[in-house]
């Protein structure tokens, strides 16, 4: 990187991603959006845009099922949904609630961080196991370094109710027996053998299923950014249809103060 890079970029931005020609056409990853892609489902377009590759209908059904089953909870108690619900309750716009909800979903205890790390862990572990390393030692190493294995254990409750219905769909589509999804459940078993109560959560199962379809960690991240969005919209809709300011109101007494005593400035 250098000053020359800035000078070169000042007059031209080169891209192969796509471009619009106002009044004429839109090129989308080398294809004419209106002529070649207009019959795509939104998921098909999304995956093509993110990866530059086309997927078959079964794969697309799996990608969509992950969004439908795993992340579309219309529940304003969930932290990211509650942001959108509070936006509705305080009479801010739906887009603001949606955008804030998506940004908040890049969280540590749920959402995008464990999602990305879980995918990365499975991809790398699979490669190492193929090269002859033992899975137990990989799991132990992860626990020693980071105290957790991403995609295992869950805040609030132990089991993950989404695994069963998602695996059912994956089996129906014939996409439930790849190497990465097998590894995801093998890791759960190793954790149990090591005495840890860390069941697989949906992050490791979805990661295993999608890794078997050939996505990279970065492609997986982009594919999932929007995955919680239905919950945001419904949470906003619900709270904006009710009287303003009524979402879980907190009285002054709801503050449990443990700071210093009263004093004068």
């Amino acid at each position: 990187m250098s000053l020359e890079d800035l000078l070169d970029s000042e007059t031209c931005w080169e891209t192969s991603i796509g471009l619009s020609y106002p009044g004429e056409k839109v090129i989308f990853r080398g294809k004419d959006l209106f002529a070649e892609l207009s019959n795509n489902s939104w998921m098909e377009l999304l995956l093509y845009g993110v990866t530059g590759r086309k997927f078959n209908q079964d794969q697309l059904k799996l990608f969509e099922a992950i969004w439908v089953i795993c992340t579309s909870y219309p529940d304003p108690r969930i932290w990211n949904n509650r942001v959108s619900a509070l936006t509705g309750s305080s009479r801010a716009t739906g887009a603001l609630g949606y955008a804030a909800g998506i940004a908040v979903s890049e969280a540590k205890i749920y959402g995008m961080k464990p999602i990305v790390k879980s995918f990365d862990f499975l991809i790398k572990s699979k490669k190492k196991v193929d090269e002859g390393e033992s899975l137990v030692s990989l799991v132990k190493e992860e626990l020693e370094k980071y105290r957790v294995v991403p995609g295992y254990a869950r805040p609030i409750i132990k089991n993950d109710e989404r695994i069963k219905p998602l695996m059912k769909v994956a089996k129906q589509l014939g996409l439930a027996s790849g190497e990465h999804i097998k590894l995801a459940f093998d890791v759960e078993n190793k954790l149990k053998e090591l005495g840890y109560r860390m069941n697989a959560n949906i992050a490791s199962v979805a990661a295993g299923l999608v890794a078997d379809q050939g996505l990279t960690p970065r492609e997986y991240y982009y594919y999932l950014i929007n995955c919680f969005s239905v919950g945001f919209l419904m949470s906003h809709l619900d709270s904006s249809n009710k009287k303003e300011g009524l979402l879980f109101p907190l009285r002054c007494e709801a503050i449990s103060y443990s700071g210093v005593k009263k004093k004068k400035w």
Binding site: C252, S256, G259
Partner: peptide, 19 residues
């Protein structure tokens, strides 16, 4: 009720409205 824990902020209510 669930409460919010804080060392930063505390409030006392008006006598006619706990909110």
């Amino acid at each position: 009720q669930e409460v919010i824990h804080s060392k930063i902020w505390n409030e006392e209510p008006e006598p006619d409205n706990p909110f």
